[in-house]
Design a protein around this nucleic acid. Structure first.
Lengths: 348, 348
DNA sequence: GTGAAAGCGCTAACAA
DNA sequence: TTGTTAGCGCTTTCAC
């Protein structure tokens, strides 16, 4: 590889002058600078970032840790982060934890050795413990918060979004509204659950524990939870479902199909997080839509701006969600009011 | 940060001994080694990978460049790569090119400065040019090939997969089979197109240019192409569609819905690459399924094994695809045989 | 089996 | 404005 010394020789200056010409052009006389730039060009010289990092103790790299790259929500987050990082000429180390704290720990450890300038992370349930590894590293948490002190966060208004969703169902006339919530050791799940409770309370509907089932954010968890909720005895069974994330929503819809129930005639459903699947499935789903790409992009902007001390962005950001009414919600209908012919088929 | 020198002092040995104890344990006496390891433990020492990389001129990092992280196929590829990399204790620099050669060039350039050990890339159409930047870097191309000499590849049997898909349609009785193909400067598109031609030829069906439309791999391209193909005059109009990738397949299905046509009664459709969307949409799609995760995983294994000279894996790997018949294909029916009531609605 | 010394490629005092 | 020098944290000869 061609090094700075090679350039120096060719341009007949000292290595430090070459370094300056590239890093602080204004400190070098115009003529010299041009001679150097030409040599750089001719030799195809590219600075060795590794050497530069070692010397400057700062690396122009960031870490990105998400929990599930197969989830389009996370993939979109990653794209937002990546785009912002590239814009500022940062390179990103990427990790995927599968929601497993142990994988997260290993990712953090491995990342630490590479001395990144900062970290963007969708924390797992044990992140608060794991992040102790990263003393003194600027961190932004995306989507959810681990509660680690001193960490920046970029999240959406989960409470408001959930409240709106449930309110919508209540306005349609639903009284028994089930919720498939995420793990309650994850902040988004807690907040969406809170929004659910608030909406019920505001309408004077008592909170009923049997109608709330937790899941581990995956499609299969949503499916199982929906199956369980819809197997309750008729008088307890929910007439509508509010599901805490995109993957579980898909699972819930599949469960409803398995049971031979119709959406929205037999059961209404609202999901949290929009997706192509939600928009194009039949019937199209009513959802709380999040500005996912912006979330990732902004988180990265926030991190980078905090690195350069231009603390233009507040350390904790909440983005607004929007509520999209499509075809999966309607006033309570047949199924809830007794056993229709459909149901027989369902009890497979 | 605690450095090797700190450990050396605490263990009362020289820095070089500490280095050896960690990198070549067998070169250090057991007692010394244990003392050192204890000091490492007590101080929470972690080797500085940047310094190590600079010195060894080798970095335990890999580059991963894909073209569209929002495409579940690519996200799955990335997960496979990531998992394999982690297994071998490599860290990955991640880039997304959006199919844009210019972004790819920038990604490669930026990556190069970080001295990765190797590169995994889904090449864009201009990769052959761009990859000239990466002289001497071990490279594995995934999914498609840029034709760059000396580069390893891990791909699927595109020709065979396409042939099987089209053959299936022919066996159902279709004669006018349209194809929505990718960009013909991308190897997968060329190969799938070839499979299409071969299947037609084998059945003695003449190849018809008007039935083949290219698209840029995105959903919207598939939609437009399908719209165009289905707007052909009745006697030229295809009765079945073979679509060259997952995203365009979704677009084609949406187009068919827009036109008010029924799948498979009015038009059959087969996609290349399975996905949750394909499996759960209604009707579920017949597809050529690829071992996507394995593709990514194996590509990374292949790269890493080539780095350590254990050339156990062949430089060019082709994985088998499988053909999954679901509900989107049937013998040619109503639509193709003339104008049904449905069609009026379609001509919006 | 261990230590001393050199140096990976770069940047940043400090001097001139 | 430019050059000299030292050193980031590590590994690897080369001695002993």
């Amino acid at each position: 590889m061609v090094s700075l010394d090679d350039v120096a020789k060719r341009a007949q200056v000292s290595p430090s002058t070459v370094s300056r010409a590239l890093s602080h052009p204004e400190m070098v006389a115009k003529a010299t600078r041009e001679r150097i730039l030409q040599a750089v060009e001719e030799l195809g010289y590219q600075p060795n970032q590794v050497a530069r990092s070692l010397r400057k103790r700062s690396s122009r790299t960031l870490g990105l840790i998400i929990t599930d790259i197969l989830n389009p929500f996370h993939a979109t987050l990653a794209k937002g982060v990546q785009d912002a990082a590239e814009k500022h000429d940062y390179t990103v180390f990427f990790f995927n934890t599968d929601e497993e704290p142990e994988k997260e720990r290993r990712a953090l450890y491995s990342l630490r050795g590479h001395l990144p300038q900062g970290l963007l992370i969708v924390p797992t349930a044990k992140a608060r413990e794991n992040l102790k590894l990263m003393k003194n590293l600027p961190i932004v948490e995306l989507d959810r918060s681990s509660g680690t002190p001193g960490v920046r966060t970029v999240m959406v208004d989960n409470i408001g979004g959930a409240r709106k969703a449930v309110q919508h169902l209540i306005e349609l006339g639903h009284q028994r509204i089930g919720m498939i919530v995420g793990r309650l050791d994850i902040s988004t799940a807690v907040e969406r659950h809170q929004g659910y409770r608030e909406a019920l309370a505001a309408a004077g509907i008592p909170y009923c524990e049997t109608l709330v089932l937790p899941g581990n954010h995956r499609e299969e968890d949503g499916r199982k939870a929906a199956l369980a909720l819809l197997s309750l005895p008729p008088e307890e069974r929910p007439t509508a479902l509010f599901v805490g994330n995109n993957e579980m929503t898909i699972g819930a819809v599949l469960a409803i199909r398995e049971l031979g129930l119709r959406i929205p005639e037999d059961i209404s459903i609202v999901g949290f997080d929009d997706s192509r699947w939600a928009a194009t499935t039949h019937p199209a789903l009513t959802v709380v839509a999040q500005p996912t790409y912006e979330l990732g992009y902004l988180a990265c902007e926030s991190l980078i701006s905090s690195l350069s001390q231009e603390t233009s962005l507040p350390p904790n950001i909440r983005l607004e969600v929007s509520f999209i009414v499509r075809e999966s919600t309607a006033p309570p209908g047949g199924f809830s009011n007794g056993l229709k012919g459909k149901r027989r088929k369902a009890a497979k």
